[in-house]
Amino acid sequence: MILHTVNKSPFEKNSLERCIESAKDGAAILLIEDGVYGALNNTAYSDMAQNAMKTVKIYALAPDVQARGVGDRVLDGVELVDYNGFVDLAESHSKVQAWL
């Protein structure tokens, strides 16, 4: 299974949307950098992320979430990881694909 990383805000670019469309059931998506804005509740893209979580696991990089002051807005079901967790996810998946 692939670990997908997304570093773009869904408000800026379609990377998260295309990633979700291309992710197989059971894949993991890790939101990093501005990609963490895709993990928030009460936004125009919350439903997209929430629906995706029926078939894929979504993670967000905690240092990027905290840096942007949105720790109180993370969607239920999104798991926060630190850089060690990022490394663990890269190790436990067979390849890593960056959606830039």
Binding site: N7, P63, D88, A90
Partner: peptide, 19 residues
């Protein structure tokens, strides 16, 4: 862009974990 910072943090974490 944050890319180099992210890559640095990832690399550092991987090394600290013994990779």
């Amino acid at each position: 862009h944050q890319a180099s910072d992210s890559a640095f943090q990832f690399t550092k974490a991987a090394l600290e974990k013994g990779h």
